[in-house]
Amino acid sequence: MAMLEVEGLTKQFGGVVANNDISFQVEEGEILGLIGPNGAGKSTLFELLTGFYPPDRGTARFQGRSILGLRPDRINRLGIARTFQKLKPFQAMTVAENVMVAAMQHSADPHKARAQALEALHFVGLLEKRHEHAKGLSTGQRKRLEMARAMATRPRLLLMDEVTGGVDQRSIPGLIELVGRLRREGTTLILIEHNMQVLMSLADRVLALHLGRKIAVGTPKEIQNDREVIESYLGAAYA
C-alpha cells in the first residue's frame, strides 16, 4: 500500500477548475516533485491535502486513512506536515520558540520541547540564531526555520512548497543538501519546485500539472523530455 493515495481530486473556484480529477500515489521514502506553470494547481493540491481547502470531489488516503475534510491540525497530527509558499514564521517569537511551538505537540513540558527544538534547529543549521526573533531572518533562513518547525511535529510525510524559490543562488546547494538529509532520516516528501536542476538531483519521480490537470508522471528525465510538459511551459512552438 502506498503511503498516500489520491483519487480523482477536484477543486473548483467559481468557473476555474484549479484541480481537475487528479490521481497519484506517493510511496514511503520517496521524493515526489510537483511541477507546472503558474496556475497549474500545485498549491491548491497542497491546500487540499493539508486540510486548508475543502475538496469538491475525490479521495485522499494517508496510510490507508481518509484525510479529506479533516481540519489542518488533525491532518498534521496524523503525520503530514507542510511549509508555506508565502513563509509564515511567528515573527515576534524567537527562532527557538518558533520550533518549540511545533515540538509541544509531543511534549507539553517546555524543557523537553526546547531540547527537541534545539535538535531540529541544529539539524537545519539555525542553532546559532536560536535567540533571534524570526522577523530578522533572511529568506533562506526562514525556509530552514519552516522546515525545522515542520520536522519538529515529527511528520511521516512532508509537503514543501518552493524550497528554493526566492532564495539567492548561493543558498540553494545547502537547501538541497538539507532536503536530501530529511529523506535519509526517513521522511517522505512532496516538493513543489520550479528549478528543474533541483528536481533532477532530488526527486525520484515528478508529477506535472497543467491548468489543473495531471499531464505526466515519471522520472525527472522522462518529464524533462515529455512533449506535453514542454508545451505547457513554453508553448507548442518549442515542443
Binding site: R71, D73, P89, V101, R149
Partner: peptide, 17 residues
C-alpha cells in the same frame, strides 16, 4: 506558546497541529 503562535500566524499554527 500556542496563544502567541495563533496571534502571529494562525494558519501556520494550524499546520503545526
Amino acid at each position: 506558546f500556542y496563544f502567541r503562535a495563533i496571534r502571529e500566524e494562525p494558519e501556520a499554527a494550524r499546520s503545526l497541529g
